[in-house]
Design a protein around this nucleic acid. Structure first.
Lengths: 216, 216
DNA sequence: CAACTGAATGAATAACCATTCATTTTTTGT
DNA sequence: ACAAAAAATGAATGGTTATTCATTCAGTTG
């Protein structure tokens, strides 16, 4: 017990370090949502976190690294949620696709603060290779998994006309576009409506498995 | 002839002012595409335009106003292109919808520099009311026109199951999402592919009018 | 051509902001 | 309880950048 106390004691320290980093990343998300990527300063972030000005450089070395970790944070959150679904042995193909859509429009994902962060980074992707490579890798991973699911459903449901890759690209684009609607909402689109629009598309491809809800 | 010379001479001066403004806006588009919204400085913009540092404040008063005029410029270009189609008496409903899609994925619109500008502003929309109100107004205008076209085609083609408003929202979101793909392209999506994906969706709604291309 | 007008210039200014680091506070180990 | 280590602080620094404005330049008029 005493022998490895030094080791054990390192755990709370490193946990606390992780917690501090997360706290700062969450403050960054709030700031980006409130003031935009170009408008968030170190002073904003640290004030919002209730900490002192120097703390970001202590934990992240630089503002740029904080921003990169913020992008990593939201994309990890998203991909790990989806991977849990893909790897869930208890769900069949149809259920996995349904769970995927539910997740895409779940409260934790389409929180407007986080949507603002997604679009803030996407808007800078062309000019920042570091942002691009993070985006490229999660996009590829998700597309592969989702295409596989559509291919399986095609096989299982005898949908000879369906092109799984096309459906994957189309669904993904649709989902991204609906996220934009949810962020900007001049028409006041609601999450549940967005989700039913995504379902409406899948129903056109797999009519025996998915049904568009009746009524508006 | 001599009487209105003073008036006539004012035209080239004011034209030249317009031209200078356009020149600066175009330089701004390039800069945003190259360095991002947060990375573009007055020095960048004026250098790119081949003019002197003070020129932006002379013509636009401030950087913020230059950015707003840049957003106005690309959204005017987009909406005026679409309005030409909507108001073209020689096209029937089906042809107008086709022309709309062609326009959405035409060279002048899906130029990657301009896509970068769209997404740069969308990313800041939540925190900047000035950007938001510009986006909201063109979104509403286009949605109204497009919904009307879909409603007409529903009527003319006896598509009893089609919900024009839903199809409009879905098509618009899909188109925005495909723009994102074209901007980020880890998979190297090509404009023609993006367009045929948009067609593929419309074919599900109006199968007698639009056909998905065969082959990959 | 000389006087006038307005556009354009860019050095100087002033504001802003990321980063540093000497100092203080808190935690840990004995 | 005490020393040593780690974490946190925030005033000071230095680099960057929007904006200003006295001056230059180009075009027009009488």
């Amino acid at each position: 017990m005493k022998a490895n106390k030094a080791e054990l004691n390192k755990i709370p320290r490193s946990l606390s370090k992780q917690a501090r980093r997360k706290q700062l990343i969450e403050a960054t998300i709030q700031c980006i949502a409130d003031k935009g990527l170009s408008g968030t300063t170190m002073a904003d972030v640290t004030q919002r976190a209730g900490l002192s000005l120097g703390i970001v450089n202590l934990h992240f070395q630089s503002k740029e690294k904080l921003l990169i970790e913020t992008l990593n944070f939201i994309s990890d959150e998203y991909t790990s949620g989806l991977n849990k679904i893909f790897n869930n042995q208890r769900l069949n193909t149809e259920q996995k696709i349904l769970a995927h859509i539910n997740f895409d429009f779940s409260r934790e994902i389409i929180d407007r603060n986080k949507l603002a962060v997604w679009f803030a980074f996407w808007g800078e992707t062309k000019s920042r290779p570091a942002y691009f490579s993070i985006c490229a890798s999660y996009i590829m991973e998700i597309a592969n998994n989702l295409t596989n699911l559509f291919a399986l459903l095609k096989q299982q449901g005898d949908y000879t006309e369906v092109d799984p890759e096309l459906v994957c690209t189309c669904y993904t684009a649709l989902s991204d576009g609906l996220w934009l609607d949810l962020l900007i909402t001049p028409k006041g689109l609601k999450p549940a409506q967005a989700q039913s629009i995504a379902m409406h598309y899948l129903a056109t491809q797999f009519p025996n498995h998915f049904k568009t809800q009746t009524g508006s």
